Simulated assay, not measured.
Amino acid sequence: MLSQDSQDPSELQRILAPVFAGFNRTTEAADADGSMSFMHPQGVIVQKDTTSTFGKEALTNLFKTWYDFTGPYYFKRSNEKYSGGGNWIVVEAKMELEKVDGSGVILRGDVMHIWKKEDDKWFMFYEQYHVDKEE
């Protein structure tokens, strides 16, 4: 049985589906400002065991640098696990970033997003990812 603060994972997935769709459109256009509009201004992005970036200015610069490197890509998630409830949703998944032009996969790995709801809008508060090693 779910605790009072927890919601059904399928309901959490339904809640975030349009948010992920909007965010994915920004990766498919390599739109740094658009991607930042989905991030909480006090958000954090962590590459596990490597780096972390915090706050609006630093995250905006990170997105710009990242998209200069990658170009447009599809952010594909699989094996998603949703948890949380209320104003917080956690999503853990396998990820694959595939170039929009079909020229290949940029990277594969694991990702965790923590989304926070403020003023009836969902923002990515925390992203942690790990890149699989090339074989």
Results as ranks from 00 to 15, higher is better:
Phe23Asp: 04
Pro9Leu: 03
Val19Gly: 09
Glu127Trp: 00
Thr50Trp: 08
Trp122Ala: 11
Ala93Asp: 03
Pro18Ala: 05
Met112Leu: 15
Asp120Asn: 15
Gln42Phe: 07
Asn61Arg: 09
Lys121Asn: 11
Phe38Gly: 04
Lys56Gln: 15
Thr53Lys: 03
Asp31His: 05
Ala30Met: 02
Thr26Glu: 05
Met112Ala: 12
Ser35Trp: 01
Lys48Cys: 04
Leu12Glu: 04
Phe63Lys: 09
Ile89Thr: 00
Gly85Thr: 02
Ile106Asp: 09
Ala21Asn: 06
Trp122Pro: 11
Glu118His: 04
Glu57Gln: 08
His40Asn: 13
Met124Val: 12
Ala93Arg: 07
Ile114Ala: 13
Asn79Ser: 14
Ser35Asn: 08
Arg77Cys: 05
Met36Trp: 03
Phe75Ser: 15
Met95Ser: 11
Ala30Thr: 07
Asp8His: 10
Asn79Asp: 10
Gly102Trp: 00
Glu98Tyr: 04
Arg108Gln: 11
Glu80Tyr: 06
Glu92Lys: 10
Thr50Phe: 13
Ser35Pro: 03
Ser103Asn: 14
Tyr73Asn: 15
Asp33Glu: 13
Asp132Trp: 10
Ile15Lys: 15
Lys94Met: 12
His113Leu: 09
Met1Asp: 09
Asn79Leu: 06
Lys117Arg: 15
Asp110Phe: 04
Phe123Ile: 03
Ile45Ser: 08
Arg77Thr: 13
Tyr74Cys: 10
Trp115Leu: 03
Tyr67Ala: 03
Val91Gln: 05
Phe38Tyr: 08
Ala30Gly: 09
Phe38Glu: 02
Ser103Ile: 01
Asp132Lys: 11
Glu127Pro: 03
Tyr74Ala: 08
Thr26Leu: 01
Gly55Ile: 00
Ile106Gly: 07
Ser37Pro: 00
Phe20Ala: 14
Tyr67His: 09
Arg77His: 09
Ser78Trp: 00
Tyr126His: 15
Ser6Tyr: 04
Glu57Cys: 00
Trp88Gln: 12
Val111Arg: 01
Asp8Tyr: 11
Thr50His: 12
Trp88Pro: 00
Glu127Gly: 07
Met1His: 15
Val90Arg: 10
Glu80Asn: 06
